[in-house]
């Protein structure tokens, strides 16, 4: 597994996958459990919405580990996963500071997760110097390059729009109710966007990464399916801008995936 005989790496990656999968499954399909564990969570559709979102992100990270289990470790995965877990640890610490939360299970588990990923990366002996590819995103296909630039643009717009107007996302989504927890959740999503931007810049320099593009394709498909479910369930209370971003993201990632999948 993971194209290595090193038992420590295999063990670390297995445990990391287990944590990602457990959080993904609980946050996507058993939100009541999370709400019971954290008394400051309000049991409403806004909390469920954000828990589902974070669950999907965890599940996609698990898909990345699954991919590498077959194909071997890839630096690209760590270029995304380590920043995203580190930022989530910071985000959880900020949450606990704001709410005086005494449940630190999540914090401890995500610190362990960070340690597992760092140990795997260091033990695998992957260099920290990133040689520049001969062309942008390591491909000569203009369409793939343009889609890569659009993906970077989408991430930048998401981050900048949060910086300019942190409450804008909730205000523009009639389905969601504003609360300190909900606004903090939007910060968490912005942190995930920062990690996505880091992974895109990494790919711009080093070349498209099979594991990252495959993870992106899975994420884009899941979010599009969730968007379709949302549009059927609550047809008049969605966020048109978010819908456009999800559809555009789907087109961009699928184009990159299908034009380059033979190299993965």
């Amino acid at each position: 597994m993971f194209n290595t005989d090193d038992k420590l790496i295999q063990g670390c990656m297995f445990l990391a996958g287990l944590i990602f999968f457990a959080y993904g499954a609980v946050m996507m399909f058993n939100t009541d459990f999370m709400m019971e564990r954290y008394p400051t969570f309000e049991n409403n559709q806004t909390t469920v919405f954000f828990l589902n979102w974070f669950g999907a992100v965890s599940f996609v990270a698990y898909v990345g580990i699954l991919y590498m289990g077959f194909k071997g470790l890839d630096r690209g995965f760590f270029a995304y996963a380590i920043p995203v877990v580190l930022l989530q640890v910071i985000w959880i610490i900020m949450s606990n500071a704001q709410t005086g939360e005494e449940n630190i299970t999540g914090l401890v588990v995500w610190i362990i997760l960070l340690a597992l990923l760092v140990v795997s990366r260091v033990k695998a002996g992957m260099p920290f110097t990133y040689d520049k590819a001969s062309s942008a995103f390591g491909v000569t296909d203009k369409t793939s390059q343009i889609m890569g630039y659009i993906a970077i643009l989408i991430s930048v717009i998401n981050i900048v729009s949060y910086v300019i107007d942190p409450g804008g996302f909730i205000r523009q989504t009639p389905y969601l109710e504003s609360s300190p927890q909900a606004e903090h959740a939007v910060l968490g999503i912005t942190m995930i966007n920062i990690a996505i931007l880091i992974s895109l810049v990494y790919q711009y320099r080093v070349g498209f990464s099979g594991v990252l593009i495959s993870m992106g394709a899975v994420a884009a498909t899941m979010f599009l399916a969730a968007l379709m479910v949302g549009s059927v369930t609550n047809p008049e209370s969605g966020n048109p801008l978010l819908a456009i971003f999800i559809i555009l993201n789907f087109i961009v990632l699928m184009t990159i995936y299908f034009r380059n999948q033979s190299n993965f």
């Binding site: 399909f29 469920v48 498909t221 899941m222 399916a225 969730a226 379709m228 479910v229 059927v232 369930t233």
Partner: peptide
């Protein structure tokens, strides 16, 4: 299938 899957697993949807 993913659409129908998500539709049926969520209580509200």
């Amino acid at each position: 299938f993913l659409f129908y899957g998500f539709m049926f697993t969520g209580a509200e949807s």
